[in-house]
Design a protein around this nucleic acid. Sequence first.
DNA 1: AGCACGCCGACT
DNA 2: GTCGGCGTGCTC
Length: 807
Amino acid sequence: MAQIAQVLVDVPTMQTNRPYSYRIPAAWRSQVQPGMRVVVPFGRGKRRVQGFVLACNDEDEPAYDGELKAIDTVVDLAPVLNSEALALSKWLADSTFSFQITCAQTMLPAVMRAKYVKLLRTTATTPTAIQTTLFHGQTSVPFDDVATTPAQVSELLRLQAAGAVEVYFQVKNQAHHKTMVGITAALDQADLVAAEKTVRAGAAKQLALLKGLQTLNGETLAQKKFSEQFAVSEAVIRTGEQKGWLKKTPIEVYRDPYATANIKATKPLKLNDEQQVAVDRIVAAVQQPAKTTFLLEGVTGSGKTEVYLQSIAAALAQGKTALMLVPEISLTPQMVQRVKGRFGKAVAVLHSGLSSGEKYDEWRRIKRQEAQVVVGARSAVFAPLTNLGLIIMDEEHENSYKQDDAPRYHARQVALWRSQYHDCPVVLGSATPSLETRARAEKGVYQRLLLADRVNQRPLPKVSIIDMKTELQKHAESNFSQALLVALQDRLDRHEQSVLMLNRRGYSSFVLCRDCGFVLKCPNCDISLTLHMDTHTMKCHYCGHEEAIPRICPNCHSHQIRYYGTGTEKVEEELRDLLPDARIIRMDNDTTRKKGAHARLLSQFGSGEADILIGTQMIAKGLDFPNVTLVGVLNADTALGLPDFRASERTFQLLTQVSGRAGRAEKSGHVYIQTFNPDHYAIRFAQHHDYEGFFKYEMRMRHQGGYPPYYFTVQITASDLDEAIAAKRMYQLLQWLKPRLTPSTQILGPTPKPIARVNRRYYYQIVIKYKREPNLAATLTTLLHETQVQQRQGLQIAIDVEPLHFM
DNA sequence: AGCACGCCGACT
DNA sequence: GTCGGCGTGCTC
């Protein structure tokens, strides 16, 4: 029997990013298994931390020549991380340069992370005076409450040394199970019958209670149900409890975020030929099984979801489970209902709108194999499904699949890892696949499945591009072109709805010429220069090139060159002025901050309470209103101005996506795109719904610029409260990196981030671009080790592998 | 992260 | 001389 456990402790630092050996007390030996949480003493003081058992062995292996400490408590009855999860956490830590403990915790519901309280406790020898002055009669007080000054701390240390008080670390488990009161008979059947004779004549309710208890056959029934079923009040039940007829016992219940009861069952829809081909190929891979990755490419309305659902059904028919990832923003109640309508109680939903308790309950349903289908956003990729038969990732190009803080993982990478582990296929779905994914399909690494037709044969909306340069010459500065205003008025008259999107990205951080649409670019990188008001310069965030802010347009010598940007509020104001009769709903970060506000605004718009919906990017996704026949994009180019090589890709994706919002039902739609760059390829290809054209063109651009998918990238960011320190460290880092990496690898920067100061910190970044870099992992790991000392001094270093944002 | 150890300056 | 400031290194 295992005597020693290898434990991963909850101390996220570089030095402690490895297992520690602990003795398993005899009483626990038969129970402790890898993947369970334990509480262990750690460090020289009385500190206790939570940890995960990674392995159990008989001998201390690897040997530690010191005395082993013993595990304090075992938190779980069954492992919370299975062997797949343990292996995944290791891989994730290595591939994202983060700590394994952080990865393990990321994979579990937040409530399973321990909370620590440092307490000061009384001992047997605590003097009475101290019990009153310090503890106010309590047996323990939070350490921080009584140790605020250095003098107090030293006094406490003295008391502790004398044994008058002791320090104690409380490790709190935040995971609580919700319970209901349940009724269990306390007497056997014969005694319950006998008890009927003891009740006073005419006590009908008491009799009903006894009769009810007799029907339980020793089972436990929820008090609420019992009370309804036998028409006895809680008071009667309480009397029964006092008479010793019954016991009240807690029954564990799940917090059900979506009442399953009122969801209508839906039947599989008839597939068109293309959909059928896709389903057949996916199902074949599920059945074989084969770890094929499919790219399911289909325009809005081509019926991707139906392909997913029927493929999932095939996995379930094989006795396997399925995981369906969707971007947070498309995880709407409609979407959930559609999946639940098909698979009922087999579905578990995981997304950020759930309370932490609800997430925990859904997680447990999956863990206990009570749910076979999981629908969720990014972190659902870690759902503890066993026997996984299919993984689906809808809208695979969405940026929200990448986590912004440590561990900086991309759900797609995790999905592919799990597909290897489970030997199951992955389906990546999108109307506008990321270049990385589409390029892999081109090379035959992924299998491409195409849905070219819209299921209802409805044509894609007509897209008109409005040149705002000429518009501005015609009339004063307005956010609305004449053509768009006329179209809006027309929809108002016909009682149809309109959606207006304002692209908020890149808000006034670059300069644009209002006469010719010229955006100042870096001579070295062909990427827009960013305006820095602090230094009054234009900077390139790739190579660090810097130049003066132009007063006249270098292209057409116009004076109309200025920062570009506007807000939704301003737009709404102007629109109310222009169209006073229109009912307008505005959706942006301000109006959707409150929980559920997003869904509420959408449902108001959906039920026709407004004529026009104004919003930021968030309205481009996941809304489907049949009465919307006009979509206007007020400023298509702001994203183009960003100093990011993915600017064109994002713009193209966004415009394509928002265009899909127009005219989905019986009415055909029209899209107006207002731009200062009417000839930009991203806008032109979006106008013609030409993903292929865009892909080919953009691939050429990436090839020329030496960007992904032709190169891999790693971003290293340093931040400090003192700008000089951050900058200095990054220049030192550059010198340190150069000799360690292959000569063909490019190191760009260091450059300051456009928003130089966030949370009073200054940010600098270095980007490493490489095709093949055998020294990369070792170099970055060394870097993490060597920067520890500086981390303590306040300099923060972050490594982001394949970052999505370069600003 | 938290804690102890250890080495320097300003006090009893 | 000692108390306590913080820099350094370790935690099974």
